[in-house]
C-alpha cells in the first residue's frame, strides 16, 4: 500500500516549524527520520494531512556537552551519530549502546533518538537508559518552551504528554554522578536486529563495593517504560554480590507487567527481566569501577 496523500513542509527554524504546526492543526506531524511515521502513514494507523520535515533545522542537528549542564542531543541527531560519537561513548556508554542496538544500519542512519521517544513504543530501545540517567526533554510550541522530565513523558503505548503542534527539540542528560556506571541490556527473538522483547537500562552509583544509588528501568514489559522500584531499593547501601544481583533481578521480574504478543510470551518476558536486570546491574558495577 502506498502512502496516503499529505502536504510537505521543510522549515529552517524551530519558530517557523511551530508556527506552521499551529496553523495547519490536526493531522500535522513532525518528521525527523520518518522511519516510524511513514510506516504508520502507509498502514493508515495515523491520519496524516501534513508532514513538517525538521531535518532542515540546523540547530536541531547537534550534540553538545558541558561539565555542568551535561549532554544535549538535538532531535534530528541520528542513532548512527549517537552510536559513533566519541564523547557519548566515553561518558555515556550505555546511551551509545542503546542507539547501536536499535533496528538496522539503514534505519539508524535515518532515525533519531528523539523520534524513538516521541513514537513511545513500550519497547522504545533508547528510553530505559535515558530514564535511568534522569534525562529530560525540551519541548517547544507556539506558546513557548517547556522542560519535561522523561519519567513524566510517556502516558501509554504510542502516547506522550506532547500536545498537538509541540516539537521535541532536545534530549538533555545530566552529568553522571561521581562513581556512576550505566548499562543497556536487551533480548529479541531473532538476533540483534529485531525489536526488543525486553530491554533494561540501569545506572548504579558506587562507592567502592557499596551501591549508593540505583536506577533501573524496564522496556517492553508494561504500557510504558517502567521503573523497577523494588529492585532499585534492594541494591541501595549494599555490597553488590552475585547473589544480590540475582535477587534484584527476580524482584524486578515480580514488578513488571508484561503481556504476550507476537514478539514474546508473558512468561518468557518475566524470566528475561530477571536475567537482563542482573546483567545490567553487573555491567553498571563494572563500568563504575573503571
Amino acid at each position: 500500500m502506498g502512502l496516503s496523500r499529505f502536504d510537505y513542509y521543510a522549515p529552517e527554524t524551530i519558530g517557523d516549524a511551530c508556527e506552521l504546526a499551529g496553523k495547519l492543526g490536526e493531522g500535522t506531524m513532525f518528521m525527523a527520520g520518518g522511519t516510524d511515521l511513514l510506516i504508520k502513514a502507509k498502514r493508515r494507523l495515523l491520519n496524516v494531512s501534513a508532514v513538517i520535515d525538521i531535518k532542515k533545522i540546523k540547530e536541531l542537528n547537534k550534540i553538545t556537552f558541558d561539565e555542568k549542564e551535561g549532554l544535549v542531543i538535538g532531535s534530528t541527531v541520528t542513532l548512527t551519530e549517537i552510536e559513533n560519537h566519541p564523547l557519548i561513548k566515553e561518558k555515556y556508554p550505555a546511551i551509545a549502546d542503546a542507539a547501536a542496538a536499535t533496528a538496522n544500519v539503514q534505519i539508524r542512519n535515518m532515525a533519531s533518538a528523539a523520534g524513538n521517544l516521541c513514537n513511545a513504543a513500550p519497547s522504545a530501545e533508547n528510553a530505559p537508559v535515558l530514564l535511568a540517567m534522569g534525562a529530560n526533554v525540551t519541548v517547544e510550541g507556539r506558546d513557548g518552551k517547556r522542560i519535561i522530565p522523561l519519567d513524566k513523558f510517556f502516558t501509554g503505548p504510542g502516547q506522550t504528554v506532547l500536545k498537538q503542534g509541540e516539537l521535541l527539540t532536545a534530549i538533555n542528560v545530566p552529568v553522571p554522578p561521581k562513581g556512576a556506571g550505566t548499562s543497556y541490556q536487551h533480548i529479541s527473538a531473532r538476533g540483534k536486529v529485531d525489536i526488543s522483547s525486553v530491554c533494561v537500562g540501569a545506572m548504579l552509583v558506587m562507592k567502592g563495593d557499596i551501591c549508593e544509588d540505583a536506577r533501573i528501568f524496564l522496556g517492553a514489559v508494561a504500557p510504558t517504560p517502567m521503573m523497577a522500584k523494588n529492585a532499585q531499593e534492594l541494591l541501595k547501601g549494599k555490597k553488590i554480590t552475585e547473589e544480590l544481583l540475582q535477587t534484584a533481578g527476580i524482584e524486578a521480574s515480580k514488578e513488571c507487567k508484561p503481556i504476550t504478543d507476537m514478539r514474546a510470551s508473558k512468561e518468557y518476558r518475566t524470566l528475561m527481566v530477571a536475567v537482563l536486570t542482573g546483567r545490567a546491574i553487573d555491567e553498571s558495577r563494572r563500568r563504575a569501577a573503571k
Partner: peptide, 23 residues
Amino acid sequence: GDGDCGACTVLIDGDSVSSCLTL
C-alpha cells in the same frame, strides 16, 4: 516497504538508507 528487508537500500550523501521510507 517497512525498512526491514534492505532490498531498497541506496546511499544518500554517503550513508545507506531505506529508500522505501524516504520521501
